[in-house]
């Protein structure tokens, strides 16, 4: 009899533990995933431009310690020696330097064009256009030794298909601000 009672006891205990474990799984599975994936998620966020911050036309935005303003976005039509159906696009920014530690704040600086479908173009090296002396690229500006209050003129050159010129918007991402990036709106938006 006692043995049977014992068996019944054990059986009940097991049921209880089964129920408890099921509830525990609800906590443990997300917890384990969080603990295991913490470093990877952090790396994913720090390395990629994922979430946009929109900047209205004509306005400037504080980003990576400085104030960024889109001054111009235009196509350089009529150039020779380019594949048919393509057009070079120039994006000009005026950046007022706030924190001059650009080598850290602007690390991995990436200027791109994003179209309506979310496709991204990086600056090209296939097209070289003459530019005034005071114009720099984002990367060269990092090493320019700019001080607080300086205004940097940045220009990046892209090569895009002709049919996307109406929908492309310039965007900027820097290491210190990722996963956020600036997406500049145009006048007509």
């Amino acid at each position: 009899m006692t043995a049977q009672d014992l068996a019944q006891d054990n059986r009940l205990g097991e049921k209880k533990w089964r129920r408890r474990s099921l509830w525990a799984l609800l906590v443990l599975i997300p917890l384990t995933l969080a603990v295991e994936a913490y470093d990877s998620v952090k790396a994913l966020l720090v390395d990629n431009d994922l979430f946009e911050r929109r900047v209205a036309w004509g306005e400037s935005a504080h980003f990576g310690g400085s104030d960024w303003k889109l001054t111009d976005l235009r196509g350089a039509f009529g150039m020779k020696n380019l594949p048919p159906g393509t057009v070079p696009v120039l994006a000009d920014f005026a950046v007022t330097v706030g924190n001059p530690d650009l080598q850290n704040l602007w690390l991995g600086c990436k200027v791109m064009l994003i179209d309506a479908e979310g496709r991204r173009w990086l600056p090209t090296s296939a097209v070289r256009l003459n530019a005034p002396d005071n114009v720099q690229t984002c990367i060269s500006a990092i090493f320019s030794g700019a001080k607080t209050g300086d205004v940097l003129n940045l220009r990046e050159t892209f090569l895009v298909p002709k049919d996307v010129t109406n929908t492309i918007r310039p965007a900027v991402g820097v290491g210190s601000e990722r996963p956020y990036f600036l997406l500049f709106q145009m006048e007509k938006d």
Binding site: P83, R119, L122, S125, A126, L159, V160, P161, D163, V164
Partner: peptide, 9 residues
């Protein structure tokens, strides 16, 4: 080779 969206190379 550097390639861009929408541009054959």
């Amino acid at each position: 080779v550097t390639v861009d969206p929408g541009l054959q190379k």
